[in-house]
Design a protein around this nucleic acid. Structure first.
Lengths: 336, 336
DNA sequence: GTTGACTCTCAAAACGTTTTGGAGAATGTT
DNA sequence: AACATTCTCCAAAACGTTTTGAGAGTCAAC
């Protein structure tokens, strides 16, 4: 409601004293401090955010870019993550703004808009690519940021990521241990780091087992992409008996393809992400997911530490992948 | 990068002239205007957001409160909606900040924090209650806002809502037309407007048909809430043959209850929200949803018009509800 | 040659806060 | 009594922009 000036005037004090009293400086007497705080409380005084931001040269804002390109924005968990992140940032006086990328505009432009206008103190990046121009830009500007997913940047940067390589390698080895020999991979676009590293995990396992790595098809990271990629693999002369899919959405598309071609579920399948709807598919979709509680809080913590100037090397979290076993991975390796 | 002062100095002009040239005022000659713009472009100049906000007394921000209380934050569509809204707000120079409500803090407090600190120009409210203290507060402060869902406030305010009354009445009448006579309702918490109005729609239809309105159970708007409420109705001496559920999540919980008690799907069921996972339940869940394209853009438009001072009466949108027919509503009314 | 109108430019104020660098009074020390 | 120290307080500057009110200069009309 009120101004610092008005508040000071009504108390017969200077603006300085009131400001410092509210901030708890020791150079204002306990008596006046109490008096000022009481008056501020009564007047419902809240410092004007814009003024403080200008003076302190901080935006008190963090932006997260939302890629609106392929289908929908993110998995259902994503909003929960953002919410948790925003909550913990708020405890430190920072607010989280969402920055969707309109079609026709590059994500880089959005970053620039926020950074050059000094609208944010840090950024949160999702859907990283192996070579990510946003990362390069922010690094060149020295703006703190954290990514969800790694990149191939030579300069280290803070990130949180799941160990897709280990996860997909383990999933493939498990199929092998169950007797499967023709294990296919439905890959996402290889420009994305997560898609590339998952493919490499599958590939590594296949090579360890002395198996050929030609049963691989790539598609958009959507239901339709998985559907088309699965059809492609099913057209092969010697079909796969098991499929390791880059994402649950693609796995659900693959299930549709199997139903259409086979009429049933003769082929084992596993996805990644643990989408809620995976529990309802038929057969219920076995999947993997990144371990770790309270991802949003972790992102917030990394952001705050990055803003505080901690070196990037200390701000990198690689989480293990765990299996979420349902039914879809249990088909025996005997299909035609 | 640069300052207005530095830019002006390098051009041999005053700050005033540079500022006005960039803003396109007519009282600066076309020649200098071009020269200034070129230099600004070259220097990558972007006005400092905090300074402009302070001077113009606008926050250039809109906040949306995210209730983190029951389970997760919102339906999957919700993030898409927010993203669309943010995108259209951004075109008008406004950014959308998400304001999650930590447990133990009231939504009202969050509103106050944003409004009293002059951190926002407007607010977006979701999950309205019939008597909503946030609405009362914002109205008393004269802060523009738009709600997702109506309230029982005597003073009109801008909103977007689905016509839950008509939708649930229609669904109930359709069950009646299909021969059902014992049509139950699984209701959400009645303090929420949407839950109340959906219950009233069911109730109105039952009364029109001359049927008793005692087959109603209330629960939390979650899977578990629907499960428990359904069990309650199934314990009745004369079971319902059809269930109209306040939300899809509750409907999915009810399906689980039916499976446990009946072993199969002897009872017709319909939900509301069109959750993606509804397509994967067994049987696939029939549901309803609000009509209207591009909800996010509509919210943004209403917000901008509210900020511009348009009267609330012109900013109220009540959308029709449409059926999304799958299989779960087709059971004949012959169950035990 | 004065007046008025018009064009272009700018100095200064304002937005509301935080921070700097003291000033004045009280207290303690020699 | 003189000097240092501590305790409270404050005037003024600064953050970077927008806006106000006015000052130069030019031109045409009287």
């Amino acid at each position: 409601m009120a101004n610092l000036k008005q508040l000071a005037h009504s108390l017969g004090l200077s603006i300085t004293t009131v400001s410092r009293a509210l901030d708890g400086y020791s150079d204002v007497s306990a008596a006046t401090r109490a008096r000022v705080r009481e008056a501020a409380e009564a007047a419902g005084y809240r410092p004007n955010a814009s003024a403080r931001r200008l003076r302190k040269q901080r935006a008190e804002l963090v932006a997260v870019t939302l890629p609106s390109d392929p289908g929908h924005v993110g998995p259902p968990h994503f909003l929960d993550m953002l919410s948790g992140c925003a909550e913990h940032l708020a405890a430190a006086g920072l607010n989280l703004v969402i920055a969707p990328v309109p079609r026709g505009v590059s994500e880089l432009e959005i970053c620039q808009r926020f950074v050059d206008g000094r609208r944010v103190d840090a950024m949160l990046l999702v859907r990283t690519k192996r070579k990510d121009e946003r990362v390069e830009y922010l690094q060149s500007r020295g703006i703190p940021f954290v990514t969800n997913g790694r990149t191939e940047s030579l300069i280290p940067h803070p990130f949180i990521d799941g160990d897709g390589f280990a996860g997909f390698r383990a999933a493939t080895l498990r199929f092998h241990a169950a007797g499967h020999r023709r294990i296919g991979h439905i890959a996402g676009p290889q420009e994305y780091y997560f898609a590339h590293v998952r493919r490499r995990g599958w590939q590594a396992a296949m090579e360890e087992c002395g198996l050929a790595t030609d049963l691989c098809a790539e598609g958009a990271p959507l239901e339709q992409g998985g559907y088309l990629a699965a059809l492609e693999l099913l057209r092969q002369p010697s079909r796969p008996t098991a499929l390791v899919c880059a994402t649950d959405e693609m796995a659900i598309g693959a299930l549709r393809a199997l139903r259409e071609v086979d009429g049933g579920s003769q082929i084992s399948i596993i996805g990644h992400d643990d989408l809620p709807m995976g529990a309802f598919t038929s057969p219920p979709l076995s999947t993997m997911r990144m371990t770790g509680e309270n991802l949003g809080a972790t992102f917030a913590s990394l952001l705050l530490r990055a803003i505080a100037g901690e070196p990037a090397e200390d701000l990198q979290e690689l989480h293990a992948i765990e299996f979420v076993d349902r039914d879809s991975h249990r088909c025996p390796p005997v299909a035609a």
